Amino acid sequence: MIVTGGSRGIGAATARLGAKAGYAVVVNYAANREAADAVVAEIERAGGQAVAVRADVGVEAEVAALFEAADRLGRLAVLVNNAGIVDAVAPVAGMSAERLTRIFAVNVVGSFLCAREAVKRMSTKRGGAGGAIVNLSSAAAKLGAGGSRVDYAATKGAIDTFTVGLAKEVAEEGISVTAVRPGIIETDIHASGGEPGRVAEIAASLPLRRAGTPEEVARAILFLASNEASYSTGAILDVSGARAILP
């Protein structure tokens, strides 16, 4: 199993749960080697197998190197396209081309590139044994994030469309493609976008009166990657505590 952005939050929770399920896990990270190593060490202490691999998924050559490193662990069974970034709150009128290029490179192009490499390895038409790709969307894809981060929401809307299209494309190749659409989750992605207190500020206004946990999202990811979801290819599962259906 490859988990992009696996050193923190939802990615780290997925890596830990994946290892518990018996996968050898590639914990991908872009910059924080210490955090990735901590996830690997935790998995190994529990008797699992994991390795940390640095790669910026927005850079094609680094994606290729990531998958080559994963090849050394054996057959790739699952790709979790979790890596994603946000920027500071801003209206569309205040967004630079540099900002837009970077966020689409990581959140959209990176998911395409990783899926491309996974399909090459998993496809039964290419000699593979099949597999599962699980993409990370967001409730923002449905809500739009107007007035704060329309660019981020747009990247996740692209992931929704990508999930459905790729699922149809590789359905006869033994590969399932699904997505999870989290809502407000207790991770540090909010801090990286300049809002460290966002979860606490809005938790009481959410339908369940609380934010979700990374583990709750990870359990949904592992379900979609498993044979228990064998007829669910193309599905996008909301894990948003009803947030994604609010007007």
Rank of each mutant, 00 (worst) to 15 (best):
V106G: 04
N81K: 10
G131C: 10
A90D: 07
A88T: 02
F104R: 01
I159D: 07
A65N: 05
N135E: 07
I133Y: 00
R126Y: 00
E68W: 03
E60D: 13
K120G: 13
L113R: 09
K142I: 00
R121P: 15
D71C: 05
S138I: 09
K156Y: 13
P91D: 13
G74E: 11
L66K: 04
A90T: 09
V108S: 06
V92K: 00
E60H: 00
R72Y: 03
L76H: 11
A65T: 10
K156S: 12
T155G: 10
N135D: 10
R149E: 13
G84Q: 11
A105S: 15
A93L: 12
R149A: 14
G131H: 00
M95D: 10
A129L: 14
F112G: 00
G157W: 03
I85R: 10
F112V: 15
V86L: 11
K156C: 12
R149L: 11
A64H: 14
V57T: 12
K142R: 15
A129P: 03
T124S: 09
V80W: 01
R116Q: 15
L143D: 08
A69L: 14
C114R: 03
A77E: 15
I159W: 06
F112L: 13
G74K: 14
E60F: 03
V78A: 06
E62W: 08
E62Q: 15
R149F: 07
I85D: 05
F162I: 04
R149V: 04
V106N: 06
R126S: 06
A77Q: 07
E62G: 06
P91A: 00
I159M: 07
A158Y: 08
I133G: 04
